[in-house]
Design a protein around this nucleic acid. Structure first.
Lengths: 127, 127
DNA sequence: CGGGATCCTTCCCGATACTG
DNA sequence: CAGTATCGGGAAGGATCCCG
């Protein structure tokens, strides 16, 4: 099906790469808490404890893991102030802010269609 | 900050409900394969086997489970043609198409920032 | 061809305790 | 305050078989 490596990127190869890129992102935002954390970060900087209080229900470990993963993908920037007690601040990178903007699309969609969603779910739960 | 409005929904309550709605959606699209499947569905209808080939790496079981979950949330519509051999077609509902539009925002974002993402990851992998 | 049911493995996640 | 380390239970996910 695929051609034997022409050396130059084919259109199909670009599509495949785009898909792979999307999958990369899907794996990141597809984490249980990633979307909530990005949304919670807002426009300004947040401290670790603030986020922990804001994202209701997230565990200590998972907040750390999620933040690290987002940091590793260039979505979140971490700044450690070497004071005592320590003070760590998280903020979205410019790329992360764009991503947040996209995520807000989800929020708007969910508000627009919440009733449909709940109706569809209740219908299926009766079976 | 917020005024006590008895009987009427306060701004805080609306925000809380919006958050809950968002979390509902996050739980759906936060599944490992949901985003990929929605993206793969495109604009026209797709058969089960087509999707299985298109979403590389997904298992038989998980494709079924993901489709069922999306169906239960009013994102996907399933049509079974009682022929032999059976022919099942999946398509996005109107709401699902809107959702796909939002998801395409992720794809565009991932393509725009792929180099940053990979750079940030390789940087963190060296540590 | 579509998809349910079962088994079995993996690893995610939460609770707890400890460090700087 | 802001994490890291460890461990156990349970869910997620893959492979396989079977049925319409």
């Amino acid at each position: 099906m695929d051609e034997p490596m022409p050396g130059a990127p084919t259109a199909a190869a670009e599509v495949a790469q785009a898909h792979q890129a999307a999958r990369e992102v899907f794996d990141v935002v597809g984490t249980k808490w990633a979307l909530s954390v990005i949304e919670a970060l807002g426009a300004d900087t947040r401290r670790y404890g603030e986020l922990h209080r804001q994202v209701t229900g997230i565990s200590h470990r998972l907040l750390t893991a999620t933040l690290r993963q987002l940091e590793q993908h260039g979505v979140v920037e971490r700044t450690l102030h070497p004071t005592v007690p320590p003070r760590t601040e998280y903020r979205l990178t410019p790329a992360g802010q764009e991503l947040q903007h996209t995520i807000n699309g989800f929020c708007r969609w969910s508000r627009r269609h919440l009733d449909e969603i709940l109706a569809a779910r209740r219908r299926s739960e009766q079976a």
